[in-house]
Simulated assay, not measured.
Amino acid sequence: MKTRVLGRTGATISEIGFGAWQIGGSWGDVSEEDGRRALHAALDSGITFIDTADVYGDGRSEKIIAAVLKERGGEKPFVATKAGRRLNPHVADGYTGANIEAFIDRSLANLGVETLDLVQLHCPPTEVYYRPEVFGALDRLVTKGKIRHYGVSVEKVEEALKAIEYPGVSTVQIIYNIFRQRPHDLFFAEAKKKNVGVIVRVPLASGLLSGRIGKETVFAADDHRNFNRHGDAFDVGETFAGVPFEVALEAVDELRALVPADMPMAQFALRWILEQDAVSVVIPGARNAAQAQSNAAASALAPIDDATMGAIAALYERLIKVHVHQRW
């Protein structure tokens, strides 16, 4: 497993991380036991970065992580969580110092630690990025010792660029994959310039870039790929990267010809992301141990050649860009 440095945090972490949304909820039936096995497999494969949130299963994800790490003992991985989406309604005025601290106290209890490695504002309304007092509240929580570092999880490149104007923002989590290429136009260069860590989520476009989803695939009622296809529950960009399902399937079919015969498409899609040196870590999810192991194996792959990278860029320009590029 290769490592990279997580921006201003200075932490050296595995370049493939473990996204713990799936073991929390909203991905159909993933049992707690499967979640534990997936996390154990990821850690056994050399993964040293875990990303979760207080709303994943209403704390279930954080609690599973705490239980697994307690069971394993030894040196702990770097655990990032998120806060803010427990607000109801989820509006900018809810991002007060008191509310944020209450969310952090809950995550401290769920994870069984005295200090959180990293807390990210969880895709707050755009207006929050224009409120310095919110980031001042996070600075005070660092001083209190409740958090070591803080960052943001964003929906839009605009939000990412605004967030890194604040000197205390150590990391930005953003959607970036073969179907969502805009971040490398400007944001990655600015993040590198300011030594901000970049955490890439939704790397497989909700499983589309695994190549295992087709027109006939049926998703469970409690799977966001069923209930959030049109953004009914949260930003539609979080589901299939915001690409219309039929369009995405057409692009995946064309992409197959570019993937080496002996390589799973999911690993190829992860390797494509790792071509960007501004990326600190990519956080695919896993429903079971086999998926976690396969994800981790992407770190050992050779770089993708220039001709293939060019073909992927052309595919994006022709089929995908019009649907997503200016929206996020």
Rank of each mutant, 00 (worst) to 15 (best):
V218W: 03
V152S: 14
L6R: 08
D185T: 08
R225W: 05
Q181E: 05
V169E: 04
T115W: 08
S45L: 10
G28C: 05
A261G: 14
V196W: 01
F268G: 04
D139H: 14
A92N: 04
H323Q: 02
G7D: 15
V259Q: 15
I64G: 03
E246Q: 07
T48N: 12
K215G: 03
R140A: 08
F240W: 01
A292R: 03
I100S: 07
V157M: 00
V282D: 02
G10M: 13
S26N: 11
L43R: 10
D232H: 09
D44R: 12
Y166N: 15
D223I: 02
K193H: 08
V5W: 05
E15K: 07
F179D: 02
T96R: 09
G211T: 07
S107E: 13
W328P: 00
A292Y: 04
R4D: 10
G310T: 14
L274T: 14
K193V: 02
K194V: 06
I47G: 04
K321V: 01
A41W: 05
D306H: 15
Q291E: 09
H149G: 13
T48Y: 10
Q22S: 06
I199N: 02
V142A: 09
D93C: 02
V128S: 13
I104G: 08
R327T: 03
E15W: 06
A67P: 00
G136K: 15
A302R: 15
G211I: 02
Y56M: 03
L6S: 14
A307N: 13
A292P: 04
E75M: 15
A20P: 01
Y56L: 03
W328T: 00
D262Q: 13
R85M: 05
I175Q: 04
D235W: 03
A286C: 11
Y316V: 10
G73L: 13
M309P: 01
S153P: 09
S294N: 12
T239R: 01
G25Y: 00
M1P: 10
V282F: 04
R287V: 01
Q181F: 00
E165H: 13
V134K: 07
N295T: 11
R201Y: 06
I199E: 02
V247W: 00
I273A: 03
E159A: 08
S299M: 15
D222L: 12
E101W: 10
S31C: 00
T217M: 04
E127C: 03
K2C: 11
L319K: 09
F268S: 05
T126C: 06
E62H: 08
E33Y: 02
N226C: 12
N88H: 14
V247M: 07
